[in-house]
Design a binder for these strands. Structure first.
Lengths: 191, 191
DNA sequence: TAAGGCACTTGCCATAGGACAAGTTCTGGC
DNA sequence: GCCAGAACTTGTCCTATGGCAAGTGCCTTA
């Protein structure tokens, strides 16, 4: 028992080994293939996923109907549409696999049970979500204050897996540049 | 009893009148003056505030040391540094009053008690935070896909109080433009 | 193995918004 | 009421990035 991904994801000082085992028991592992859809816009999320290996992309549509990549989820990360799952409303984001991989799935009801039964798990959830909020706000600042080149270089440094495995056009919309520009940035970086 | 701000802020279908009264009892009202500091970067938040009247600004510093306005908090909204309060770490944001006003304050410990004693309050908190996350992500998309003029017009439409009461330079950094440009945008709009 | 079609690159020009600097107006003490 | 400094406007010029269109290379499928 005790797959290391659970220790990596559910990391909170007050979560004991027994808790982690109960948590793991509520998850179910499965393999997935490139192109597989995890959640479609318009559906209400009833579960979330831990990604053990592989890479997922999430995207929404802007007012003109263009796909905007909102994020990537890689190994040891949680793939979740928080707003849909916790407010029980249709998702505006889509989640799709960019590669084959392995993930663990947990149903909302099972999550709720853990959430109410294990206080440390509840605290973990709040801390995790507050961290996500922090990251989202930081991303906002970066978008407003850093040049496209700097944003790309930072992504390369912080999440090389994405740059290696995701196609250019998705990285471009994620960074808020056209793929033309990103192509030029790559060329320039490669000096 | 039952100040309407509590009904407005703590809005959740399962929060009953008795709950709201217990919640209100844990808050303390106070008046504040323009320029008053609610939380300074580097401090760890030990409380949060409901703003009954008035307007607050939050800001952080970018890598060059420039002030970047990260948000405004107006009437019937919560002023909180989520990451600092729930992860017990120093804030990177500052919160300061742009106007005089009235607010209610609650200490973290009192909040924790409500959070553990009232399940509906706990659910409310999770839904509230997931909504904040949703808003932050939406803001990201807007920043990447909308022109400065459109961003300003939307702000004007969605939160006129800010445009009326906050100085131009703060609105400018919030929207990610220079104050020179915002001044020109305003002129152009006024056609 | 040919054909169509993505994904990406490259060139050329256009434009939103930035940088800087010189006003002008507003505002809060005194 | 007066003054200093802040807040805002405006002019001129500049740069990063977008828009469009024409490649090039690669991968899939028949």
């Amino acid at each position: 028992m005790a797959n290391p991904i659970f220790k990596a994801v559910y990391s909170h000082p007050e979560l004991k080994t027994a808790d982690l085992e109960a948590i793991q028991a509520a998850h179910e592992p499965f393999g997935f293939s490139k192109g597989e859809v995890f959640l479609k816009a318009g559906q209400t999320a009833n579960n979330y996923f831990l990604i053990e290996t592989g890479l997922l992309r999430s995207f929404a549509h802007d007012f003109d109907g263009n796909e905007i990549t909102t994020g990537f989820t890689g190994a040891n990360e949680i793939m979740i549409e928080v707003a849909s799952l916790f407010q029980r409303k249709p998702s505006v984001e889509n989640f799709i696999a960019l590669t084959d991989g392995v993930a663990w799935k947990i149903e909302f009801e099972d999550f709720q049970k853990l959430y109410h039964d294990i206080p440390a798990f509840n605290e973990w959830g709040r801390a995790w979500m507050s961290h996500q909020l922090f990251v989202a706000k930081q991303r906002n600042i970066d978008m407003l204050t850093k040049s496209a080149t700097v944003r790309y270089v930072n992504l390369l440094k912080d999440k090389p897996q994405i740059v290696l495995e995701a196609p250019l056009k998705h990285i471009a919309t994620y960074l808020g540049v056209t793929n033309t520009s990103l192509s030029r940035i790559r060329k320039e970086i490669a000096t």
